[in-house]
């Protein structure tokens, strides 16, 4: 640190309206998808189809949060794949434990 008093006149770059607009647009999409989920929750009969729709819409929301809010879409390809690649293990766990769950069910009932 320099001994003299640091007077920083940091240069503020003016706001880019386009960028801010885009952020609010993504927020709008997230809110809209959530509202659609609510409508489906009360108008559709419960069942496999509804569960599939919910999971699909959840992935849509997750995509917008990770890609736009967390900015991953605009990172380098190596970084994107370092994060997305290992997610395959989660997919494996879902399949493995769902099979396990139904095996436990048929054993107990």
């Amino acid at each position: 640190m320099s001994s003299h008093e640091e007077t920083h006149h940091t240069h503020v770059i003016p706001e880019d309206k386009e960028k801010t607009k885009k952020i609010w647009r993504v927020a709008g999409i997230l809110g809209f998808v959530t509202i659609i989920e609510f409508i489906f929750a009360f108008t559709m009969p419960r069942g496999i189809l509804l569960v599939a729709i919910f999971l699909g819409l959840t992935v849509v929301k997750a995509f917008y949060i990770v890609a736009e809010f967390m900015h991953l879409k605009h990172e380098q390809k190596t970084l994107i794949w370092s994060i997305i690649g290992p997610i395959v293990l989660i997919v494996w766990l879902v399949i493995a434990l769902m099979v396990e769950g139904s095996a436990i069910f048929s054993l107990r009932y």
Partner: peptide
Amino acid sequence: LITYGLIRYAHP
């Protein structure tokens, strides 16, 4: 969350 799925699936 997957454990939740497993346990729910193992219940009627």
